[in-house]
Amino acid sequence: MTEKNVIKRKMLVLGTFSVGKTSLVNRFTMNKFSDIYVPTIGVSIKKKSVELEELIVDLVIWDIADVATFDIIPDHYLSGAHGAVLVFDLTRPETLAKTLEGIESFKEKLPSTAIIIVGNKADLIDESIEDTINDRGILEVHTSAKSGENVEEMFEKLAKLTLEV
């Protein structure tokens, strides 16, 4: 049996404060969740491999600290990213508005980066959780870092997307 090829990918996790970026990353990389909110300072880097049918993707995830707008994120954090998870809080609609506001400038900076918009904290709302494709052509997924719902699937989808672009 031949060894699967391993490809490395740089992933970004972005979003306004307290939407659950670090919780999502911790759930994905360590299968852990904490209710205590500890703001990220600068950037936190973690890694997890996703095994696909033909290859393994090593995701090096850059969990970037809360920023008011995507424009002020330092370029050296963003540069060369293969994929990005833009997180908003399903219980705070204004966080989605903020994400959608910044998405165009983000796409200008990183035109070939695969993007997923993630509505986190799905456990706190009653709506049925469905993945949808919005009119921008960006995949939107609802997750819950607390219950772990859709988290693995979301990162797997993003890993696949990065291989397509």
């Binding site: 740089k10 600068g42 950037v43 880097i45 890694k47 090593d58 850059w62 330092p74």
Partner: peptide, 16 residues
């Protein structure tokens, strides 16, 4: 891999 990422972040931060 994490060390390499963190080093790059530090390097980028210092230089910028």
């Amino acid at each position: 891999d994490i060390v390499a990422g963190a080093l790059t972040a530090i390097k980028g931060f210092v230089e910028s």
